[in-house]
Structures are given as C-alpha cells and as structure tokens.
Design a protein around this nucleic acid. Structure first.
Length: 109
DNA sequence: ACGGTGACAAGCG
DNA sequence: ACGCTTGCCACCG
C-alpha cells in the first residue's frame, strides 16, 4: 500500500535538479493539501540518502533548518552546487524582468 | 482526552 | 522585507 509518506517522498524526488519547492507545494503534489507540516515531519525522519531533501524550502524561500546547524550548511552547499544562489539562509527567487510590463503589454512606444 | 510542539503557510500592519 | 497572529494537523507525554 502507498502511504502518505510514500507519496510525499515521491513528490520530493520529482523536484528537478537546480530547482526548489516549498513544503506546501510538495504536500499538494502528493495529494495532501494543507499538510505542509507533515512533509516537514516526513523529511525529518527520512533515512534515504538519495532523496533530494535539500530542494525543499519554506514558501518564502528560507531554509527551514536552524541557522548554522550542520544540516543547514549541508543544504546551502547542495543548493549552491546545483547553481542556485543562497543568500542569508534564503534561496533567491527567480527575479522578474524589470520590464515585465513591456513583455506583457508590448513596448510603451 | 488535552495541551504543547513543530524542517509550515497566508494575511495584515 | 520583517514580525505577529491565526489556521493547520500529526505526534507525544
């Protein structure tokens, strides 16, 4: 039988290299909306070394682990190794184009 | 059963 | 962008 934990782990494994997902997103993708805290719990108990747990961050981009803890540093390192920018414990979000208006509305002639 | 806790999230000032 | 508050839900003593 597939347990909730199984589906959560599967969802985590589907996060592409070089990308991150929030606990809430993973919960939803696992068919468990509003179970972000369950995702956190599952990860904290996970033993699978192959699981890309480092790609899971909080909705605001912050790393959820305690600052300067071994796990925290491990996560930072792995994310940077995948090409992401981690600044002050937070993964930089995709910066929106400053001229987004132009892209959407066309040049302001 | 009940209250505290936690690798969370969204709304509001 | 930050800090607070509230909602959330599984676990544990």
């Amino acid at each position: 039988m597939t347990t909730a934990a199984d589906r959560i782990l599967a969802a985590v494994r589907e996060i592409p290299h070089g990308q991150v997902a929030s606990y809430g997103e993973i919960a939803t993708r696992a068919g468990l909306p509003r179970r972000a805290r369950l995702v956190a719990r599952v990860l904290s108990h996970n033993d699978d070394a192959a699981l890309p747990w480092h790609r899971v961050v909080r909705a605001d981009g912050c790393i959820a682990l305690e600052r300067d803890s071994a796990a925290f540093n491990e996560q930072c390192g792995r994310l940077r190794a995948e090409g992401l920018t981690v600044d002050n414990g937070r993964v930089r979000r995709q910066r929106r184009e400053p001229d987004l208006d132009q892209q959407v509305w066309g040049p302001a002639d």
